[in-house]
Every structure is written in structure tokens, then in C-alpha cells.
Design a binder for these strands. Sequence first.
DNA 1: GATAGGCTGATTTTCGAAAAAATCAAACCA
DNA 2: TGGTTTGATTTTTTCGAAAATCAGCCTATC
Lengths: 243, 243
Amino acid sequence: MREKLKPAGETRAADVLHRMRADIISCALKPGAKLRFEGLREMYAVSFSTLREALSRLVAEGLVIAEDQRGFVVAPVSIDDLNDLTYVRVLVERECLALAIKNGDDGWEADIIGAFHRMDRLQTRLGSNYYLSEEWGKLHGDFHFSLVAACASPNLLEIRQKLFERAHRYRRMSSQFRTKWRAKDVEHKMIMDSVIARDVPKAQELIERHIRETTENVIKHAGHLFVAHEEVRHGRPDHVAAE
Amino acid sequence: MREKLKPAGETRAADVLHRMRADIISCALKPGAKLRFEGLREMYAVSFSTLREALSRLVAEGLVIAEDQRGFVVAPVSIDDLNDLTYVRVLVERECLALAIKNGDDGWEADIIGAFHRMDRLQTRLGSNYYLSEEWGKLHGDFHFSLVAACASPNLLEIRQKLFERAHRYRRMSSQFRTKWRAKDVEHKMIMDSVIARDVPKAQELIERHIRETTENVIKHAGHLFVAHEEVRHGRPDHVAAE
DNA sequence: GATAGGCTGATTTTCGAAAAAATCAAACCA
DNA sequence: TGGTTTGATTTTTTCGAAAATCAGCCTATC
């Protein structure tokens, strides 16, 4: 009957790390925003040192930037960063996919089909606004992960995961501005089919196009949002804006 | 005339991070070793929280492993890890090289020649034991970095750097056991020449062989060292071993 | 004799106060 | 006026004591 806020022997710092990462990825903490300790301390209900520990890890993950003696800032977004991210992601995802297709067994295939199904059902249930849902974002991530789960290289998988998470911020930004969406569900289905058919070149081609098209969409629809993030980084207090 | 222990406004935690990373890479902190706070606190002369912050970043870099509620451990080494590392490094280094050769300008070429020269001269001066030198390790790292410095992708370069550092632990381990070394200086010269000749396929081929041969050497000469790192991780106190 | 439960000492984790550093603004001089 | 210094205020960084947790050991009980 004992309450269990923390799932398993998880450290408080690790818990804050998870929550904070989620908040950055979902843009609840906006790109370029200054992270003041006093505010964060309330927000996450932990002490300075614990916060600092979580922030430090996020720095190493590239989601937060530390400016020596000047505190922390949410990693800003920019078209250059997005393009570079896309470039590296294409390289890494293609390789992961080739490896996974080579090594995957029946269980791996089954997991893919299951993950697709879960994502697809929620998509149907949510209707045309599915991409705004936090829950769908999670299932979408799970689906993409399932495709490469059989990739036998832990290092490559870890790199892939970090890149995927960073890209999520951009996906999210675009989804707020879009009017009509390309038939993404069809794309996902095609990718899945080619993977299960063990067609490496086709699967690679499709995943590459999938990533690149998302990027183009983001730049077209939300690119104007992050041309001048400098302003955000040195953002003035509210009362100044009100004058 | 004011003393400057810390180069620029560098935070104490960042300083400890650097020193600790160097100590792990150079194996002054042995793979698999338990990192007790009391000991580290003396060693680096900082407080718990500051230590914890540095350790947290190293966790995100993959050089340290955090076991929830049970402290930190230097990331162990293993043949599996080395093989995986090698695989990913080949992929990444090849790509970096292609990109650098495409984008590099005259200054880039000059830097490569300079870096090679520095490494080569120290090598000559140190004689057959050059590879044990900390200083040579640094220049060797600088040379390899100079080759890919013109790679226009910050993300790829950062990934490369982290992988390179992790690989250094293995290079170091092998160098303690080797009796005779392959003509590495010739290899480096050939790689440099092919890069400056802008011969992408040849440069990629050479760098791949360079990496793979190092790995084979490590496994052959030092592989027996890290078959059972479990033992180290749960190391018994000295007095037990003496019984 | 084996196992669960509880104690004890060692180790990790968290906390908020205190020190250090940066920022902002008013006062000052050229 | 323009630029620098000074001092008060805010914000970050560091510290070590206190709380929480773990590992080993002992005991009670079946």
C-alpha cells in the first residue's frame, strides 16, 4: 500500500533529468530560453545541486547549453542546426536500418507490426489533429525505434536516439503551423513493409525521404520562427515588454 | 601580474570534468573502477556536489556509468565494446573525411601538414617509446582532428570526437603490451597524402584500415586484460586477496 | 540449517545557506 | 556627450552537514 512516486530505486536527479528532457523536447521549455535556478527549483521541487546535476547531463546531450558562470540556456533552434541534424540523421538511420534488417528475427518483426498498430489506432482515434498529441509523439517514437531495434550496435542506437529526440523539437514546431499534412500514415506503412520485406535499399530510400521531407516541411512552415533566437536568449523581463 | 589558475571564466565543475575525463582516457582511473566520493574529493579537491556534476556529464558521454543509489563506476572495457566502437568509428570517420575533403581550403591543408609535423618530430625525439607519452597522444589526436576539421557538420564532428576519446583508452592499453609496432608514422603520412591529394576513396580506405588494424592489435595484445571486468567492478578489499 | 527481519557502519544523495561572480544603474570624470 | 568606475542587486556556483539508502552481519524463528 505504500505510495511509490519513484518507480524503482531511481535517484531524484535522474527523475528531474527525465522530466526536464521531456519538457525541452516538447518545447514546454522554449528553445533559447534562459534557465534560472529559482524558477526551476519551484517547477521541479528540488534543490540547486540536484538541478545542476540534471542540467549537466542535458548539456552533454546537446539539449542545454552551459555558459560558464552565466548559467544555462535551452539549446536554441536554427535552420543550420536543423539541416545538419537532418544530414547526420540520414546517415545514421540508414545504417541502423541496414543492420537491423540483417540481424532482425521474427520477434523483431512482430514488435514493428505491434508498434505500427498502436500508433495507427491512436492516429485514427485522434483524427486530423493527431500530431499535436503528446501520446502520439511517444508512439511515433516507439514505432521508429522498433524499426531499428534489432540493430546490433549499441553505440549507433544510442547516437540515433539522441538525434531523434533533438529532431522532435523541430517536428513539434512545424505541427503547430501546418494547415494540411502529407499522408504520413501511408509513408510509415510503406517503410514498415519494405523493412519487413527485408529490402534494404528501398527501406533506406524511404526513411531518407521521410526524414528529408519532414525537414523541408519544418523549414517551410515554421522556419520563420527561429531566425532570430538571439532575442529570446537575452529576453527582457515581462514588464519591459509591457511598456 | 594576477595569477590565473583557471584559463578563462571556467567553472570549477568544468575544470574537474576536464581533469577527470583526461584521467579516465589515460586510464589513471582504471576501467570498471568504483568511484568513491571520499577519495575523489581528496583527489580533485572539490565538494560532493561539484564532483557529482562532473560525473553526471561523464555519464552522458559514456565514460562513466551511474548505478542508481549505488554511485558511479568508470565505464568498463570489453572486446564487444571495442568492436562496436570500431564499427561506428569507421562509419563516422569515413563520412567526416569525405566531407572535409570536399569543403577543405588551403588553410585546412596547411593545418594538417603542421599537425603532422609536430607529431612526427616528437615521435622522432622520443624514439621507439613515443606511444607511451601523454604528449604524443595529444598531438596524435590533434593530427587526426586536423584531417576532418573542415567537415562542415558540427554534429558529426562532435560525435567523432567522443568516439575518438573513448577509443583512446583501448589504444593506451595496447601500447603497454606491444613488443614491436607497425610503421604507424608511415600510415599517418599516407593518410595525410591521400587527403591532401583529395582522393576520397583512397583516404577512406586508409583511415578504415588504420582504425581496424589498431583494434586488431589491441585485441591481440591486450584483449586478455579485459575479459573479466566484473571482478574489478565488485572488487574485494586488498586483505581478501592476500589470504 | 535455512530464511526473514532488523541492526550498524559505510556510502551516496539531497538540501539550502554562504561565497563568488555577473548584471544593472547611478555617479563620476574627461 | 561618451565612456568608465563604483556599488547595490540579482544570479550562479560551491560547500559540507544532514537525510536517505545500501551492504554486511547478527539474531530470532520455523
